[in-house]
Nucleic acid binder design. Sequence first.
DNA 1: CGCCGTTTAATTGCACACAATTTAGTTCAC
DNA 2: GTGAACTAAATTGTGTGCAATTAAACGGCG
Lengths: 154, 154
Amino acid sequence: MNVSDQSLANQLCFALYRASRLYIKLYQQALQPFALTYPQYLVLRMLWEADHQPLHTLGTQLDFGSNTLTPLLRRMEQRGWIQRRPVATDRRQLIIHLTDQGRQAQVPVGQAIQQLTAQQQLSPTEGQLALLENQAIIADLQRLLAHQSIIKEK
Amino acid sequence: MNVSDQSLANQLCFALYRASRLYIKLYQQALQPFALTYPQYLVLRMLWEADHQPLHTLGTQLDFGSNTLTPLLRRMEQRGWIQRRPVATDRRQLIIHLTDQGRQAQVPVGQAIQQLTAQQQLSPTEGQLALLENQAIIADLQRLLAHQSIIKEK
DNA sequence: CGCCGTTTAATTGCACACAATTTAGTTCAC
DNA sequence: GTGAACTAAATTGTGTGCAATTAAACGGCG
């Protein structure tokens, strides 16, 4: 980005921040009847895609550290969505399994989300474009942050 | 958005969530020497633009409620960035003023941000496009959420 | 004047996020 | 084999975000 464009970066960062919070607020409306939060829904989606994943893998996919996942997964276990089971061969690891309740929630939760997101007036074309743009931003930021942490090592 | 595109909404929401967190992480690197957080920086920016604003007005511009701003502003006052002063004519209100420290931070903080954001490889054109797309999403979500809260009133 | 609805700030309680540290377990070089 | 380097999860502490509630004060109306 050009040096003269601090203002653009500021606007972009703030727009992403607001858009993210608003989108999550919309999702929370759909998730509230299930007593799920948005990060918890993300974990469920990962597990619906592929069950029996280690905590670490979930963290990699969602960009969460163990300090975020540990209490989040504990709450999800308490509420019966998942089970946290240790591994015999490596006692450091923890494998996350869906419970029956967790598996069965897939359809109704999906429908609740559908019902709200279908009301968006944003065209699929524009949505696609925004997705691509934002993925480019993510890639750029990841590169930059990785680079920064190398500098920090010194 | 089309009914068949739940997956697009899911991807978009997640991309916004990740991009926002990454961008904020980048900003925090610049803000860390000043012991400022990103939301605190946003408040400072509003006040650099126009000083002596009521808490409520700041909340409107940043999309924060008083339950977020109250503790945030208290911390900022403790650290000497701002002052919270009651109004003689209306004791419910609270006007936020910059301190000298808060005013003088504008240039060095801006430079620190500049130094990091200048390293983005994202082209200004793409940044502009992403900004427009995301602003369209914000507008769409605000419309939808406002509509939902009307339904909720019933 | 006095009451009531409204507005606004503060409070409470819960759930993230994340930096930094600690604890426990594994692996690899020698 | 064993000790250092590494890895994974948990812990600690701070700072948001936000729903829901409470408290305070204004303002209009009878």
